[in-house]
Amino acid sequence: MINKKVENVADALKGVSDNMTFMFGGFGLSGIPENAIAQLVKLNLKGLTCISNNAGVDDFGLGLLLQQKQIKKMVSSYVGENDEFERQMLSGELDVELIPQGTLAERCRAAQAGFPAFYTPAGYGTEVAEGKEVREFDGKMHVLEYAFKADFAFIKAWKGDAAGNLIFKGTARNFNPNMCGAAKITVVEVEELLPVGTLDPNEIHIPGIFVQRIFKGAHFEKRIEQRTVRQKA
């Protein structure tokens, strides 16, 4: 067993520095690497490029990095829940690349899987395709999109072991598995770090080969963005 376990978030984030490109798992606030984000706030790195489906809310998730003006560029598909984000974008302080959500996921997966680029129909004929190579397959137009290149991927999983094997829960899975192994170093925080041999190999979502560092997160708030309920009849 190759041991990927590190003791805490400080050890897990060794080697991060200004101007790096980071990937963050999560959809909205669900399945975001809260502990890694808190540490990045503490380290107060600047000039970051962040690849993440969303940009958090004003006071949680990547919104915390935005508040400290740590982010130079965001690559996302939807950023509608964050006023500070919108302010920084409209004032030109923040560079933003908005891309289709499926393209975002596939650019992660391509990096993970060793594909330099791929064609997708998403965005053809729109401003997203401007300046990009296009090609017709079976009578339909497609846009060439490239694999991401990133320094660190910050991942949140439900259960894991020291070998780096991961299991995700519910829709907190989202982009997390696609980002594992898609950056030079993949750092995973888990709710439960279990002894090696406990996880059933049949049920592993991501094998440890895609993970360089794993630690048990000290605290998970797991904030709900839109609390919707129905009444009991």
């Binding site: 669900s30 959500q101 499926g102 982009f175 997390n176 979502h205 709900i224």
Partner: peptide, 28 residues
């Protein structure tokens, strides 16, 4: 409500018998 079970509008939801979860690349 479960913070780990939401829809694309970030609303808390439930699942029905026969439901499945998957990653974003598989979703697309």
């Amino acid at each position: 409500e479960d913070a780990d079970i939401i829809n694309a509008g970030k609303q808390t939801i439930t699942t029905l018998p026969g439901a499945s979860f998957f990653d974003s690349a598989m979703s697309f």
